[in-house]
Design a protein around this nucleic acid. Structure first.
Length: 200
DNA sequence: CAGTCGATGTACT
DNA sequence: GTACATCGACTGG
């Protein structure tokens, strides 16, 4: 794969919705002793301390500490007794905000992704959901708080995706509050969660 | 195809 | 004790 530049710190310090939109099309990469797994980010959601669906709405807790850091760290949390979800922390120190990675399109390490997820899934079902992405990439509690500048986890620069290719919609799975249109996805990409399965 | 529901552990009230 | 930024298996049309 071509050499890619790691996203600069300043990228993550922007307003969370701007970071979310710009993360579409970027490459997420996990390097471990097992090898390299990478994927193109195709679906994200923004979360911010100013709205009730965010983990940070009620202030600091042990779990959400990483979300209050300055942007550029990975926030990983455990939910439903069995799943991990990973987020990109945004904005300045003291603001609890992040962008949830909801779906990626596999690039490198497909063999590892299949091994991590099990071999009874179709290609499109490997990484089309936030907990699926974490399982596929081998991301868990131990990655909480790691910097996205590497060496374990990184996000790499890519050419900007035109806004005509980005679909904006309501967030998924929110039960405590009115859902906001803070979800960004690549239009018609088959790796997006809840994508319609084409018959032809 | 859509809708329902159990799994399973942790953080927080 | 309750809710949970989910997934996958199962049901019925």
């Amino acid at each position: 794969m071509a050499n890619r530049k790691v996203l600069p710190k300043q990228f993550y310090l922007q307003p969370t919705l701007d970071v979310a939109r710009q993360l579409i099309g970027k490459l997420f990469e996990h390097r471990s002793n097992d090898g390299v797994i990478s994927g193109r980010i195709v679906e994200v959601e923004a979360y911010h301390e100013t709205e009730p669906a965010s983990h940070t709405y009620r202030g600091r807790t042990g779990r959400n500490e990483v979300m209050f850091r300055d942007g550029g760290y990975l926030y990983v949390y455990f939910t439903y007794g069995m799943h991990y979800c990973m987020n990109v922390v945004t904005e300045g120190s003291g603001t609890g905000a992040a962008v949830l990675i909801r779906a990626v399109e596999p690039l490198d390490g497909l063999e590892w992704i299949i091994r991590n997820r099990g071999d009874r899934h179709t290609l499109h079902n490997l990484t089309n959901g936030p907990a699926k992405v974490c399982e596929a990439f081998g991301i868990d509690r131990s990655h909480n708080g790691l910097p996205l500048s590497g060496p374990a986890v990184r996000i790499l620069e890519t050419p900007a995706v035109p806004s005509s290719q980005i679909e904006i919609s309501r967030r998924i799975g929110i039960s405590r509050a009115t859902e906001l249109e803070w979800r960004f996805a690549l239009k018609d990409n088959p790796f997006v969660s809840r994508a319609k399965v084409k018959s032809g």
